[in-house]
């Protein structure tokens, strides 16, 4: 079975996101009243598997996210045979 997963990896709450801070500041300079800006990472992947949930969970834990500093969430779509 073929699947498509969309994965979002975020920094854990309370951890400082320097890239987000700088981008937020730049938007502020453009006149927007930014109070917070964060830069999560977004991945799209297609894969073949009989156990898609288990695989995506594992891929997040083993590589896409670093469990020390990240949380992650994902959705999986069935692309058929």
């Amino acid at each position: 079975m073929k699947w498509k997963a969309k994965v979002v990896v975020r920094l854990k709450e309370g951890l400082n996101d320097p890239e987000g801070r700088v981008i937020g500041k730049a938007l502020k300079n453009l006149g927007y009243n930014i109070t917070e800006l964060k830069v999560p990472k977004y991945f799209e992947l297609t894969f073949e598997s009989e156990t898609p949930e288990k695989d995506v969970e594992e891929m997040c834990r083993r590589l896409l996210a670093n469990p020390v500093i990240h949380t992650y969430e994902y959705s999986i779509e069935n692309l058929g045979e």
Binding site: N16, P18, N66, V68
Partner: peptide, 17 residues
Amino acid sequence: LTESGLLPGALRPNKVP
């Protein structure tokens, strides 16, 4: 070493990026 789990923790982007 931290990414492989041989040492604990993580190295994050510098505070001043």
